[in-house]
Write a protein that binds this DNA or RNA. Structure first.
Lengths: 227, 227
DNA sequence: GACATAACCGGACTGTAGTCCAGAACGGTC
DNA sequence: GACCGTTCTGGACTACAGTCCGGTTATGTC
């Protein structure tokens, strides 16, 4: 539970009521600690790439990085934390686009204000692609410890974003609760299983179908279907 | 992976294309094996009730049952398998109602043929209640081993059922893929997290909102909403 | 540059899931 | 009731995640 809070990582924190960027705590990090952090991340990335995320033990990573196990766990908490650190960079990109990038993902558009329905659909699709692209790593970050998915800051970020869009698209509904439902099929565990059984395109299409049914196609909003 | 297939357990198997009841393999079970199975299940149930599912180790169960660890794993495969065996009874009840019980859950109605939309909503609600009632145990059965949820026969049963109803309610869509999406927010891991953060009623209401948006209210089918 | 203090380091240690296999127990046969 | 192939048993064994703490090293101060 005691986590690394010193390093220049974990880019975003979520303000209670709105999405806010916030560089994490003052970059006070001892030089040896910094050296080790880099060594660990490099070693982990290499071992994961070589042997597959599932077959790499924390001992092996510590050994490859030339670092003790204690150091490894002190900095990253657990296996999930290590995965989060490795994903941080790429995740940040997506987060930045969502916060301040061009439509449909972000809020920036030349004409009028962006449509929350389209933004939601675009977000779900983009996020699903992100998870699929780093499936094993994300899966580890979500399942290494029970309940990990819902504890990490990133999930709260995605949840908040989803809830804000839902609140705009479906006023009157319980956006916070609905957002969890929308995010459920985007868990790495779920996508992993579905993709293995069917294939990615069908899974993505089905998710889009469900989201579209929930919020509708676009502003013209003619319900969703008419049987 | 090598599983117990002898005992009178695991009530249903799923035929490739339709829902079929099928008592499992011939009840050929050696008397010592039967004795031990009962002892293990009884010991597990008691320890779980006393100390909480999370805090009971397989060693402890084996010891309490007066049985070796090897026996425990041979019969139940892993922790998830043990949970499945314990849930079997209650799950079977729900399955039976769905297969041959009264509407809205089952297909039996006095008037005309049952409406798949209502049946789907009823099923989702009933299943969610079932999971919530045995949250820790179901959670263990789904998360003890990675991907466990999607391997156990029960999931395939629920998935098949959901897919059949979806195929009737939304012809033209990819029912198999959509069924996975519908089941995603019903995972124990997900419900556990959401219930801890909000509460059960909001979670249930949100799930119902989403399902209703997907299939509509009833046969009268006037789309879902019109902004 | 010596000192004090806080932060960090690493490997021995613990607890648990899951494997393995030599031998015991079963149950059918003559 | 003795024999035999099959199935089951149980505890020693491995591998891994995660904890703990005495010793070490960086950094700010005089």
């Amino acid at each position: 539970m005691s986590f690394d809070t010193t390093g220049p990582r974990s880019g975003y924190a979520i303000h209670e009521t709105s999405l806010v960027t916030l560089r994490s705590s003052p970059p006070k990090e001892r030089s040896d600690a910094a050296r080790n952090r880099v060594a660990v991340l490099a070693a982990a990335a290499e071992l994961f790439a070589r042997d597959g995320v599932e077959h790499v033990s924390m001992d092996a990573i510590a050994a490859a990085a030339g670092v003790g196990k204690g150091t490894l766990f002190r900095r990253f908490g657990d296996k999930a934390g290590l995965a989060v650190a490795l994903l941080d960079e790429r995740e940040r990109e997506l987060q930045e686009t969502i916060l301040s990038g061009p439509a449909p993902l972000g809020p920036v558009t030349s004409t009028d204000k962006p449509d929350p329905r389209e933004r939601l659909r675009a977000f779900v699709d983009a996020y699903a692609h992100y998870v699929l692209a780093h499936l094993d790593l994300v899966r580890m970050s979500e399942t290494a410890a029970p309940g990990a998915r819902y504890r990490i800051g990133a999930y709260r970020f995605w949840h908040r974003h989803t809830a804000l869009l839902l609140a705009a698209a479906r006023p009157g509904d319980d956006a916070d609760a609905l957002a969890h439902v929308v995010l459920a099929p985007l868990s790495a565990e779920h996508l992993h299983a579905v993709v293995a059984e069917q294939d990615a395109d069908r899974a993505l299409a089905a998710i889009d179908t469900a989201v579209t049914a929930l919020v509708g196609e676009d502003v013209g909003g003619k319900g969703t279907r008419g049987s």
